[in-house]
Design a protein around this nucleic acid. Sequence first.
DNA 1: CAGTACAACTTGACAGTGTCAAGTACAACG
DNA 2: CGTTGTACTTGACACTGTCAAGTTGTACTG
Lengths: 210, 210
Amino acid sequence: MVPAPSEQHGDVRRLVLDAALAIIESDGAESLSMREVARRAGVSHQAPYHYFGDRSGILAAISEEGFTGLAQAFRDVHETEMPAAKAGFIAYLNFAREHIGHFRVMFRNDICGVTTHASTAIAADCAFDELRLMVARITGPSIDSETAHTFAFTLWSHAHGLATLVIDGPLPNKIPPGTNLEDQIHAVIDLSSQMVALKAAEMGLVPHGH
Amino acid sequence: MVPAPSEQHGDVRRLVLDAALAIIESDGAESLSMREVARRAGVSHQAPYHYFGDRSGILAAISEEGFTGLAQAFRDVHETEMPAAKAGFIAYLNFAREHIGHFRVMFRNDICGVTTHASTAIAADCAFDELRLMVARITGPSIDSETAHTFAFTLWSHAHGLATLVIDGPLPNKIPPGTNLEDQIHAVIDLSSQMVALKAAEMGLVPHGH
DNA sequence: CAGTACAACTTGACAGTGTCAAGTACAACG
DNA sequence: CGTTGTACTTGACACTGTCAAGTTGTACTG
């Protein structure tokens, strides 16, 4: 049976996971070597396999952890006084930047196989449910579920695109000379959330308050 | 000196590139092995290095090719009768889906180092210039360059997010049961372009016609 | 026409990689 | 004490990226 997480056994799993995250954060997911992970965690080169099965297993575990964290980030948005759309964009981008290791893996089911790892898929579903709850704050209750779904997908796309372009894409290199990256990012977030708010208003949707 | 591209010499380069693209399309960029590429191209395991220097070199070449293609896709949008925003979203998504191999690499400067490969950076700049021209069709001329830039970034983010989520992300697995993926995608594109059009109208921007 | 230079490769070697297979240490349980 | 199971370790294998050195053919000089 699995020992209590507080015991030393659980530590190796955590150690391995943290070592993997450190590598992914600094060099990207491609550079993740199981042997280097093991070396940094101070265990034999085969120990990680005991916990995660194979390379995709460790990535799936990171992905799962990431989705759980993202769901929490979405939940935390409910506490804000900011307009929900803007707060959502900021939360998404902040999560991505603060958890680059997780973020780089989460949306890559080509390398971690969300479809093959059930618990990762469940965590992803939870995060998406939380996103839909957040979107419901923008659209209000007077909306059919199909449109609500489309709204959720759309906002997700917008936030995701910005985050990926900022983190691994060429966006940081493409800001005009003399301008500040953070300012540009906030201008994009502002513009995006204004677009969302305008459309919601045009559709006669009323966001519900706190 | 470099031989004319029509000669047999150029063929190897093309062969290697195509083999690499085939691997990336089917298995992702992580699974790209230089030796497997060489094997499929029917050359020695070192031949690809002759042309591309190292693993990141081949990825940079693919990236460059991709950005050149994307720029062309943007140019082709000018021919459409559709509203520019919607046409742009569709063009971006189509490009991504029809050139998965290129797309999976282009925006990953963690693996192909756009910063280190000059010609790739130039191609990326060209594509971005073309994007700005396209955005100018939406915003019209009555807009200061800073706002125009923000508009371009924003639309880019929106389109990019949708494309990445569709191609490698969990979006295809997250459509509600009984609904069609293509319909969902088009609903998102419609909603996004409506948001853009609304904001442009609110700002008093007038798109210029054909 | 000999000589040289250079591009376009090939062959060989090396350290490092993912993963299968087998072993060891040790606690829990009967 | 013996069995069972977890938590690893050690060893091996085929494969990887890349450096170094060789080979072939072609172009161009003297």
